[in-house]
Amino acid sequence: MAGSIRIRARLSGDVAEVKALMRHPMETGRRKDSAGNTIPAHFITEVTATSAGKTVLQAQWGAAVSQNPFLSFRIKGAKAGDTVQVQWLDNKGETGVGEATIK
């Protein structure tokens, strides 16, 4: 699921506001399908963001984060042209990654 994250990073002053939108079903494992079978849990458990060679945010998520998760955070001392990379890992061991350049 590479490329499953859309990222925008916008600089204002020396703070970059990063907005990331990940594509993921975020199934809680509590829902049932129309036949009454439980839909197995499938959700992102970890998110890591790096920029300019350093970790800028780490997240540990439960199933209560909404489908197609949105995450925004702000990096201080950022420069235009720096890249921001966001990676996720879900409970099935699948991963996703996305990258953007700070503008």
Partner: peptide, 17 residues
């Protein structure tokens, strides 16, 4: 629902749904 680790250099700010 969620836990965030904010390293030095990142603002104490997060937004999620």
């Amino acid at each position: 629902a969620a836990a965030y680790m904010i390293p030095e250099g990142t603002e104490a700010f997060v937004q999620t749904r």
